[in-house]
Design a protein around this nucleic acid. Structure first.
Lengths: 338, 338
DNA sequence: CTGTTAGCGCGTTCAG
DNA sequence: CTGAACGCGCTAACAG
C-alpha cells in the first residue's frame, strides 16, 4: 500500500503538504503543487478511506436503505437506486446499501459505527416505526416518501394528490361522467403507504370540481386475474362509458389487456389513464396516457437536499416536505374530447 | 460518540480488554467479560468502522459492481443484489454499490482507497476490459458471468449450455421435429455476453442428439413488435408444428401473446419453453414451461466463494469457473408427449 | 507558503 | 488473565 508519506518522500515535501494539496484547504505554491501531483500520479496514490474517515470524521459514504419487496413491483426500485448512486458519485461519495429487513437496527448500525455521513430511506410507511429512530441519529436523514409524522425529517415524494387530480381531470375532460379508479395492490394498501390516500383525495377533489361521479375498485392484484375482475366490476357499476384511472403501475398492462379482451379499445371506446413511468406507458399497445411518477426527479431532489444538509455552510430547505409535481402525457388511450 | 475507552472506564478495565471481549481473540474471565458486555449494552457502544478498518486492515465491506442497463432487463438485477446483500450481512459485512459506468476506475478506487475487502462484479462481457484490472487488484474478486479469459479470477454463472440442452430437449420430447430459438435482445448480442453463445451451443448439441432441426431468429427486441416479427419469421420457416424456445426473459410474455394472437395456444398447438425466472414463468397465462436461471443460487454461491477467499485459513475452490445447473419446470406450455 | 505535531478510535504486541 | 503502549494513515491546528 502506498501512503501519503511515500508521496511526500517522493516529492520532497512533508506529509501534511500532500494532504493539503489534495484537499486544497490552504494555498500551495504552484511548484510544490506540481511536484506533489506528479508523485501522486507516479505512485498511483489513493488515500486510505478508513484513515481519512477517522481523522476527518467524514466517510464520504451515503447510506441507502431500500426494501426489496418480495415479488412485488421491484422494477420501480432501480431508477431510484441508479439515480441516487449517480448523484452520490457526482459529489465524490459512495453508496452503502442496507436492506430494509434489518429494520431500525440497520439505521443505528449505519450511524453508530460511523459507516456513513447521511442516510436515504425509501419505502416509507404511514406509521413507520423507523422514523423516530431515524430522527434521533447523529447523521442527516432524508425520506423518499411521506410518513404521517415526519418527526422533523426532510421528505421528498411525488405529489400524489396532484397526480390524482391530473388523472381524473384528464378522464373528465374526455367526456366521461363516471370515473372508476382501479386501485392499488393489496400489499401496498395493507402496508399503509400514504400515497394511496393522497392519490384518492386528489382524485375526489377533481371529480367534485368537474362534477363527475367517482368510484373505486380496490385493492386490485396487479395480474391478469386481478385486472380482469376489477375491470368487470368497474364496467358493471359504471357501464361502458366509464373512464378508468389505474394508479397501480404494474396493473396498467393487465387492465389494458382486459379491456381489449372485451373488444373495448382504449382511446376509441373508453379512456384509460395510468399512473406509471413513461417507459411503461410507451411500452404497451396502444400507448397509455399516463401521469408520470418521475422517480429520477424525486431521487435527484432528495440527494440535493441531503448534500445541502451535509454542507454546514448552506442553509437547509425551509420546507420539510417537498412534493414533486407529476406530469400528464396524453397518448393513445384518451378519448377525443366530445 | 462513545468509544471503547468509555466502555473500558465504565467496566473498570483497560481499553484493550474491551477489544478482546469483542473479538474473542483471547480468553477473558467470565466476570470481566460480563462487566464489559454490560457496559457496552449500557452505553450502546458500537465500534467505529473507520478506526477498526485502519487498525485491522479489514473494512467488513463488500464492493458490488452492477450495470444498470438503460431501460433493458433490469428486473433481473434485484434478486442478485438482494441475495448478495443478505449473504454479506450474514457474515457481518456491508455492501458498497458501484455502478458499472465508472468502468475500471471504480475497481481501482474500491481497492486503492481500501473501501472494501472484496469485490463482486456482475454483467461480465466476453472481452471485458475490466478483467485484467480486476485481476491485478489487491483484493479478491469474483465474477458473476464468465468472460473469455478469466485471468485467474473465480467466476460463477448459470450453466447456459445445460439450459440450452434442457430447453431443446423438452421441446424435442414433446414431439417437435423443428425447433426455433427466438434469440436474445440486440444489446445483449452486441455487448458480447458469453451466455448467448453458450446457450446456443447447448441447444445445438441437444438438437443433434435428438435428431431434430434447429433454427434461430436473432436478435429479437423484447417487446410486442419484436416478438410478433420473430414469431412470424419462426412459423414462416418452420410451419405450425414448430417448437419455440425463448432464451430472452423479457421476450417470453410478448412471444406468448403473439402466439395467442394467431390462435395458437401453447400447450395445445405448440410448445413454448422460456429461459426465465420461475416468477415470470408462473405470472403469465398459460404458465410457461421454463428453464430457471436461479439468480439467488448463483449469487449465494458467489458469496460463498468470496468469503472463502477472504478466509486466509480456508482453501479456495480449485475450480475457477463454477456453472450452476439450471432447472426445467414443465408447466402448461409443453405439448403432451405424442 | 511550508513543516511539525497531536490526535482520530481501535487492534495488537509486549510486560506483568 | 490483564494493562500499557504503539501504530494504522490521515486531517488540522499550531508554529515558523
Amino acid at each position: 500500500m502506498v501512503t501519503s508519506r511515500d508521496v511526500a518522500r517522493a516529492a520532497g515535501v512533508s506529509q501534511s503538504t500532500v494532504s493539503y494539496v489534495m484537499s486544497g484547504r490552504r494555498s500551495i505554491s504552484e511548484e510544490t503543487r506540481r511536484r506533489v501531483l506528479a508523485a501522486i500520479e507516479e505512485l498511483t496514490y489513493q488515500p486510505n478511506a478508513g484513515a481519512r474517515a477517522l481523522a476527518s470524521q467524514r466517510t464520504q459514504v451515503i447510506g441507502l436503505v431500500v426494501r426489496f419487496r418480495p415479488g412485488a413491483d421491484t422494477t420501480g426500485l432501480l431508477p431510484f437506486i441508479e439515480t441516487i448512486a449517480g448523484c452520490a458519485r457526482a459529489e465524490d461519495h459512495d453508496v452503502l446499501l442496507v436492506t430494509a429487513d434489518e429494520g431500525s437496527e440497520g439505521l443505528t448500525r449505519l450511524a453508530g459505527r460511523a459507516l456513513c455521513d447521511a442516510i436515504v430511506m425509501m419505502d416509507i410507511e404511514a406509521a413507520d416505526p423507523r422514523i423516530p429512530v431515524a430522527a434521533a441519529l447523529r447523521v442527516p436523514v432524508i425520506l423518499i416518501g411521506v410518513p404521517d409524522d415526519n418527526a422533523g425529517l426532510h421528505c421528498v415524494d411525488v405529489d400524489f394528490a396532484a397526480a390524482g387530480r391530473l388523472a381524473v381531470g384528464e378522464a373528465a375532460a374526455a367526456g366521461h361522467e363516471r370515473i372508476v379508479v382501479i386501485g392499488h395492490a393489496p400489499d401496498v394498501v395493507t402496508r399503509g403507504i400514504n400515497f394511496v390516500h393522497r392519490f384518492e383525495e386528489g382524485a375526489a377533489e377533481a371529480a367534485r370540481s368537474h362534477g363527475v361521479a367517482l368510484e373505486m375498485v380496490s385493492p386490485v392484484e396487479p395480474n391478469r386475474a386481478g385486472a380482469e375482475a376489477a375491470v368487470a366490476e368497474a364496467l358493471h357499476r359504471g357501464g361502458p362509458r366509464t373512464g378508468l384511472v389505474v394508479p397501480n403501475s404494474p396493473a396498467v398492462q393487465p387492465v389494458l389487456q382486459a379491456l381489449l379482451d372485451r373488444r373495448l379499445v382504449p382511446g376509441r371506446d373508453v379512456t384509460l389513464v395510468g399512473l406509471c413511468t413513461d417507459a411503461v406507458a410507451e411500452a404497451s399497445t396502444p400507448a397509455v396516457t399516463n401521469v408520470s411518477l418521475e422517480p429520477r426527479d424525486v431521487s435527484r431532489r432528495a440527494m440535493q437536499i441531503l448534500f445541502r444538509l451535509l454542507d454546514r455552510a448552506a442553509e437547509p430547505p425551509a420546507e420539510l416536505v417537498e412534493l414533486i409535481p407529476p406530469r400528464l402525457t396524453r397518448r393513445e388511450t384518451t378519448l377525443p374530447a366530445p
